[in-house]
Design a protein around this nucleic acid. Sequence first.
DNA 1: ATGAAAGCGCTAACAC
DNA 2: GTGTTAGCGCTTTCAT
Lengths: 325, 325
Amino acid sequence: MHRSTAARALNPTTSGLLTRETVARVVEAAQRLQYTPNTIARGLRTNRSSTIGVLIPDLTNPLFPPILRGVEEAIMPLGYTALIVNTDNDPERETANFHALLARQVDGLIVATARQHDPMLDEATRRGVAVVLVNRGTGSRQFPLVAGDDREGVRDAVAHLVGLGHRCIAHLAGPSGVSTATVRASAFREAVAEHGLAPEAAPVVGSHGYTEQGGADSMRQVLDRHPGTTAVLAGNDLIALGALRALQARELRCPQDVSVVGFNDMRFADALSPALTTVRVPHRLLGFEAARLLLERIGTPGAPAKTLLLPCELVVRKSTAPPAA
Amino acid sequence: MHRSTAARALNPTTSGLLTRETVARVVEAAQRLQYTPNTIARGLRTNRSSTIGVLIPDLTNPLFPPILRGVEEAIMPLGYTALIVNTDNDPERETANFHALLARQVDGLIVATARQHDPMLDEATRRGVAVVLVNRGTGSRQFPLVAGDDREGVRDAVAHLVGLGHRCIAHLAGPSGVSTATVRASAFREAVAEHGLAPEAAPVVGSHGYTEQGGADSMRQVLDRHPGTTAVLAGNDLIALGALRALQARELRCPQDVSVVGFNDMRFADALSPALTTVRVPHRLLGFEAARLLLERIGTPGAPAKTLLLPCELVVRKSTAPPAA
DNA sequence: ATGAAAGCGCTAACAC
DNA sequence: GTGTTAGCGCTTTCAT
């Protein structure tokens, strides 16, 4: 019995070439000896690692774990494993991690950290690594992207607020350089204009990051510079949470004094005080579809870069109400 | 110029053997050609993958992301990468993932999914893979473990409740088979006994999992079977959150009608309604120390299995108050 | 239906 | 100080 025969027996696509009996014998022996094929050695030979890299900006943001779940669900049945790295929104960590992934010969990359101008992605292209973007896009349409339909979500949120009677609504935008921040802000401007609000009655202030701290800072800024504001649309739920805290610190009540709408419907959004009205994005599905697109792209590298926008849904809870009379 | 010379130049430990000039030339060329050494091939040769596997039971539990951060902080400077897998508390996924990690020749395993009787860990031992347990331990002292000092945390929590005047305190324990659940429950029984509470005044009810659902179920059970209960100590914060929701559903107020104490001080514990009194566990440090222990163990496989218990701290917020008169 | 042999990219031991 | 050689564990021709 030769090693190559054994290898054939263990590989489903080649085991057909062998005697039923040989295959059985090999499989039995493999089990008995607890043989596990060395993925590393196989990868060296086949030039495929059966590993994909996933770049996450902040794993403590509850938006991302469900995305990862979706990714795993899609890839595990195909024998792939995900190499997950946390960049902490730090470009240096991002580059270091990116190169660590390349050195490990990942077959492709799912990138949730894309910035609008992103040299890392250019390098990935040059090296011929398949890339799919998730949640955040980039300036160009060069890469497939799976994201929530932010424009639709923002439109629904603004319609809800206007329907409640708000006429002075601020947007607590995300950090600059990130596509979701840009898209949501632009959708906000469009939506308020459609409802006939003047730009002065619908200020947009940027946050330093998609964080509580960022949200608290920009909420304070709105309170100071636009005292007539009765409602805010936050760039995401973490920003909304920061806004809630800033309001509380100023002894302003939500929703009686100021209504707050979040974005994403992250886990715990319904457990905050007050329960957060927010735009639900199908997190798990985002990851799942991104992974499927990636596997597709690994299979046929030439294919055109699809953009997949998944529908969002406004979830009304307790943080929004009509403005005080 | 030979490949091995190039390899030597790129390797910091061997580059000293070469001419300054040769090294410079190689480094320049490597940069120009964007050469990245193939970690896979190196691993095949050296029998080390510079990769460690991390088994997480539930990434959507905010306890775990900070642990991962700690792990990354410890390993990244040494050139290691973490292969993170989510088992979702599903033994089948766990086994599958475990074997995927072994097949990828991980140098060691950080296990946050340990059950008290865990055949997977036996297999790891048999295969000679270094293992360090984090947060959850196992029956034997066979493996190094880094965890919070649960006994101390429980003792502080019970003292706090008794100090407030509670005389009928229930424990919403975690799922059976998991060490943290067992340890916390046993510490609870000890602590209430020390304060002179009769066992009937301090019931322990198990939850199906460390989840909101599990917590809501066991809270309801306490309400039904032990109506005199004025305070509960939850096995973790997710259970506490479930308890909060069950109370709300029954129109019971927290803390006026029932006080609730959580465990872990997960992210958002302070943003719940009411802000949760809980036992803070140093999550990041847990991961960091576990990773350091693992690297140590990879270096010197024979070393005895240390158990590292990190101090916890009770954080008093708004979910606890004296019982109604 | 199976065996033989080559080679993936790298490194360590041994020459020189 | 640098070149030579062999081989890590696997897959894949090619030959039988």
